[in-house]
Write a protein that binds this DNA or RNA. Structure first.
Lengths: 339, 339
DNA sequence: CTGAAAGCGCTTACAG
DNA sequence: CTGAAAGCGCTTACAG
């Protein structure tokens, strides 16, 4: 009883009970129905329970080629949006017997390539990927190797992959229309200079909304790497000075909003009296801010559920040539004082 | 060239080059020195490079008993403190050939037990654990099974395990002394009702600091589960009403501070005029808050580095009976407007 | 209803 | 300096 339990193998059990390893294996894998007598099943299951036997997963992987592992490659696991999704996903995956390995690309293509190459050695069963810029060739390569790939947060409009994303276009349009209905006239958009669908869709949604309202397109696009730097701060300041007519701003990401709020505070601009504010992604920061910030919140739990259930569905499929899983969810507008 | 590269095995290479798999294996594992001729080594390495061969990790694991996997069991991966540490750890571990699996216990003992049992099947090489309450027996069990265990963020003062933690006692004492020097008289402590060393050490540091200053112990301890609920809010409000003399508050965790700041705002209490504020853990929220909040920040990068380098050191050891790795790091006081 | 045996892809003690 | 072979712990096609 005091022996190291991880040393018990199927062979030990077979020997102990006077059965073959075949029989034990069938019972463990629930493939015993109509093959093994109930009496034997009972005896084996009781024994397994008693000694706390757990199959060696390395041996199973070697034999079956499956590792029961899913990689979740995000932009940045310390970003509250991704870490919240990760937490929800983790539990769902564990409950289905899969473990998840998280990794961050920092939106760097080179890092993402490194990571994928590393995980190929480890033979993971599926990839959930938040691709960085200019990454479609790598995704295509992975798919062509018959790997299971699920895109998350961003996708490629012209390609037929599996994905779970927000309705960025519609959610942004809705946010702008809300600001318009609140009486704001000159609504600006502060976004990222990037080809990622998440951001281009948001920008398109904004442009369409102002076009429909016959208003001017007042937009500033900042490079990803500049957002948290002085360069980004300066660009935003200059943008405000160049367009004194702006009376509301839609920030396309929570990091942009944080940068923007700092500058607005520094310039002593009152929210919402001088400028109304709304941003993507809810964070407790926005709720606690004075004034509290209106947000277009992403449905974290639903996104996580769709990603995992979609990926598990793909893992169960026999052929990869079936329909793609393509899910688009709407954001939720949470109105606070800033607008 | 277009063949599925994951199908290449050591056997294929041996056959192709007219060598034995032994030779190939030695070269792959850098054990070829003084055994294999340089000429052969060169030839094999070139071929491996050319075909992009990667060893099958399941087979390696089965053979060696090592999985090159580390589990990092945190309280909550969506908490900014843990996700920031996780991100730093991830890179360091990957660079050493280890992958990390994150999981959250939500400070629930039952969940933590489930997770450990699950990872035992997977035979991970090491456990980095942020134990929930009343978990010492489980840690002891794991250690007695010769598993590699590294405690993080919290530890057991009376037991000799490996750990990397903050100097919670000293850092809290320093924070209180700073408030005292700023002229605050009645400094309150808002903490958690728990036996976790992190929190008891912080509370002890506070108590010692007020004792030395001949001031009263003004403290409120809230249950972990109540922090983000109405119960916690009410407890904090009542505490303030009961002690109108309080002119400064030290929050022991960032979540407590968020709750507290919401209430202070609601009650229209001015910071720092009416009450000075300082909290543990830095978050951009605190920097952006009006006024910006003074924090006792944890050295995320150093903590992550110590945890990983310590764990890797343990993994390299032959005998588990050597000295424990026990690291204590100081917090950094970042002074802002709130104090 | 049950079992003997091959084989997944490695590592390494042993032999030469 | 190089190789034949055992064995890690499973799963499963095949035989009875």
């Amino acid at each position: 009883m005091k022996k190291n339990q991880s040393k018990i193998s199927i062979k030990d059990i077979a020997q102990e009970l006077g059965l073959s390893i075949t029989t034990i294996s069938f019972i463990i894998n629930k493939k015993a129905k109509n093959r093994i007598s109930d009496e034997v099943i009972q005896k084996v299951e009781a024994y397994i329970e008693k000694v706390g036997y757990k199959p060696n997963s390395a041996a199973q992987s070697l034999r079956t080629g499956k590792t029961k592992t899913i990689v979740f490659m995000v932009e940045d696991i310390s970003d509250p949006f991704f870490s919240s999704v990760a937490k929800e996903m983790e539990k769902l995956a564990f409950d289905s017997g899969y473990k998840i390995i998280f990794c961050s690309t920092d939106n760097k293509k080179s890092r993402a390539i490194e990571l994928i190459s590393m995980f190929k050695d480890r033979q993971v069963d599926a990839y959930i990927i938040t691709p960085p810029e200019d990454f479609q060739d790598e995704i295509e390569q992975l798919v062509s190797e018959n790997q299971i790939v699920m895109l998350f947060d961003r996708f490629y409009r012209d390609a037929d992959y599996n994905y779970v994303v927000l309705n960025n276009y519609g959610s942004t349009k809705r946010a702008v229309e809300y600001l318009k209905n609140q009486g704001f006239k000159n609504i600006a958009y502060v976004g990222l200079k990037t080809e990622l669908s998440t951001l281009t869709d948001r920008f398109d949604g904004y442009k369409e909304a102002v076009r429909e309202a016959n208003r001017e397109n007042l937009s500033l696009l900042i490079s990803f790497d500049d957002v948290k730097s002085e360069v980004g701060n300066k660009q935003f300041e200059e943008f405000l000075e160049l367009h004194p007519e702006i009376d509301a701003i839609l920030f396309a990401t929570n990091n942009l909003a944080i940068t923007g709020l700092k500058i607005l505070k520094k310039k002593n601009i009152q929210i919402p009296e001088d400028i109304g504010v709304i941003t993507f992604d809810d964070r407790d920061l926005f709720e606690l801010h004075a004034p509290a910030i209106t947000v277009m919140s992403q449905p974290i739990t639903s996104l996580a559920k769709e990603v995992i259930s979609g990926t598990l569905k793909l893992l169960k499929r026999k052929h990869s040539i079936q329909d793609k899983i393509q899910i688009v969810l709407d954001g939720e507008l949470i109105v606070r004082k800033s607008s």
